[in-house]
């Protein structure tokens, strides 16, 4: 397991369910879920090398651009869970993806780096530079992360879109949970992990 949000995602996925991972990378998370949760898995990924990696490890993958929308590929409610892991901040239209994903699946799981994390605030607020660290490793001029947000920003968008937050977890890079983290998640959570569904 090599990403801080995986163990939370895994806990939320019901065994034997149908799982779609949008922006699945090399398919490692899906392969992990297949092994641990016996899920039926499909991924969607744009980059050649990542798609080839998925194919080589036996993860079903569709090569497509998330920014072109996903509704044409998947029927409404054709999955139990749709995961968007560390991807939504790189989307051209995160709000469209959020609406579409909850159209395709019963529940959505979204993880992203929290811009409100204290180190990010320190780097921007005190040092006057765009944050660069383990969770946000790219310089501002060459980053896929064009739509960074904080926990508060994300929750405001969910409210606006009629998306219900079923669960929220925040972790730091080492996957530790602490008093500080639970008390002030938007300050001390480096990564945010949400379980969502469409209201009503």
């Amino acid at each position: 397991m090599n990403r801080p949000d995986w163990h939370i995602v895994e806990q939320w996925i019901a065994p034997g369910s149908r799982v779609l991972d949008l922006g699945c990378g090399d398919g490692a998370l899906l392969a992990h879920l297949v092994e641990r949760r016996r899920v039926t898995a499909v991924g969607l990924e744009l980059l050649d090398a990542q798609v080839a990696a998925c194919v080589a490890r036996g993860v079903s993958v569709i090569q497509a651009d998330l920014d072109q929308g996903v509704s044409e590929w998947f029927a409404p409610q054709s999955f139990d869970f749709v995961i968007v892991s560390q991807t939504i901040q790189a989307m051209r239209n995160p709000e469209i993806l959020l609406a579409q994903m909850l159209h395709i699946a019963r529940e959505g799981i979204v993880t992203f780096p929290n811009m409100g994390y204290w180190r990010n605030r320190w780097q921007l607020g005190m040092r006057g530079h765009m944050p660069m660290n383990k969770a946000l490793p790219n310089p501002w001029y060459n980053t896929p992360n064009i739509h960074l947000c904080t926990l508060s920003d994300f929750e405001a968008l969910c409210a606006e879109l009629g998306v219900e937050i079923l669960d929220r977890a925040v972790v730091d890079q080492d996957r530790r949970s602490s008093f500080w983290l639970r008390r002030w998640p938007n300050w001390f959570g480096e990564h945010a992990i949400y379980r969502l569904k469409k209201r009503g």
Binding site: V42, V51, V55, I62, E72, S78
Partner: peptide, 21 residues
């Protein structure tokens, strides 16, 4: 090819799709 893949997905089949540049 996408038509084929979408039909397979709708039928619940195991499918991978790649578009080679």
């Amino acid at each position: 090819s996408r038509e084929i893949v979408q039909a397979l997905l709708a039928a619940g089949k195991s499918v991978s799709y790649a578009e080679v540049d």
